[in-house]
Design a protein around this nucleic acid. Structure first.
Length: 299
DNA sequence: AAAATTTGACCCAA
DNA sequence: TTGGGTCAAATTTT
């Protein structure tokens, strides 16, 4: 708790203040006629990066849904074309599924025995270390889904997993579903955490045909957030609209409406949705502190 | 050499 | 039989 406060303070001091300064400079720059656009874009990129870092850190300390629901579990499917209304049941470790929805093929739902929560974020990293163990093309979805498990699954029996999939309607966003909480020794996890060097794992999604030339098959966060040529979109996170384009029966990807938290960043609006069983994201304070410390000097 | 990723095979409920 | 999730051998990266 105290440590979380300390971390927040640091985030405030380093990232947010820095971002604010960048934004101020940008504002000055824009108000001056004939100022070079290149540097404006540069500033914009810096601002974005700064805020992304801050959000990432804060978000992992304290997942945004403070009003945790009492649901035992929540739908985990991100299949953009499927409506879900079955329920999870307790089950063994794996390979159990729940019924289809609306008779449409491919609309499965996985049984979940542990808490599951989903968020949307342009940021792929978090404070845990993950090992990718699979990737699947998902029916009716444009982007593949990547599967990750905790690096310490076998050494420490940690059962946490996550699934990551690009959001169809906003390809710079990722839908990240966390399943189960970490039981691994967080101290052991520290050295593997690559929370700040921006040059690591995260998903490498290969999609056969992506239209944006700036989207390479390897979608590292840096590439995502750094793009100076991203034009105005580099500055704005578009509002996420959960609108089903090819199937009317579906209103929202996360149908079991729970908590939806919004945060405003740079005047734009990003929506994060957190669901489920009062996700017990249990972080060791030390871990965060260490991670944050190691990050804070990287601007 | 060890750790991580890729990717086709496999499992199983629907 | 199918699609989603996982496994594991092959491959790549560190």
């Amino acid at each position: 708790m105290d440590t979380n406060k300390a971390i927040k303070l640091k985030v405030m001091n380093y990232h947010l203040v820095e971002g604010h300064e960048f934004a101020t400079k940008l504002q000055q720059l824009l108000s001056q006629p004939g100022s070079g656009q290149g540097s404006a874009e540069d500033l914009a990129a810096k601002i974005l990066e700064t805020f992304n870092k801050a959000i990432s850190i804060l978000d992992s300390i304290e997942p945004l849904s403070s009003s945790s629901s009492s649901l035992a579990a929540v739908e985990g499917s991100q299949n953009a074309s499927c409506d879900n209304d079955g329920k999870f049941e307790d089950s063994g470790d794996s390979r159990k599924r729940l019924g289809p929805v609306k008779g449409k093929r491919g609309c499965y739902k996985r049984k979940k025995r542990s808490e599951t929560w989903t968020k949307q974020s342009p940021i792929l990293e978090d404070t845990y270390s993950w090992r990718k163990y699979g990737q699947k093309e998902i029916l009716n979805a444009k982007f593949p889904r990547s599967y990750f498990r905790c690096t310490h699954k076998y050494t420490q029996g940690c059962k946490a997993t996550k699934q990551v999939q690009k959001v169809e309607l906003e390809p710079r966003m990722f839908s990240i579903t966390y399943m189960g909480s970490h039981t691994c020794n967080t101290n052991a996890a520290i050295p593997e955490v690559k929370a700040c060097d921006n040059h690591h794992d995260e998903i490498t999604m290969d999609m056969e045909e992506h239209q944006s030339p700036s989207l390479t098959t390897s979608m590292k966060e840096e590439e995502e957030n750094h793009r100076p040529h991203g034009s105005s979109t580099a500055l704005v996170w578009p509002e996420i609209v959960f609108e089903e384009d090819h199937h009317h029966h579906h209103q929202a990807i996360y149908a079991s409406g729970d908590t939806s938290t919004s945060i405003d960043v740079l005047g734009s609006h990003q929506e994060l949705m957190m669901f489920g069983a009062g996700g017990d994201f249990e972080f060791s304070d030390n871990e965060h502190y260490a991670i944050f410390n190691s990050c804070s000097n990287l601007s």
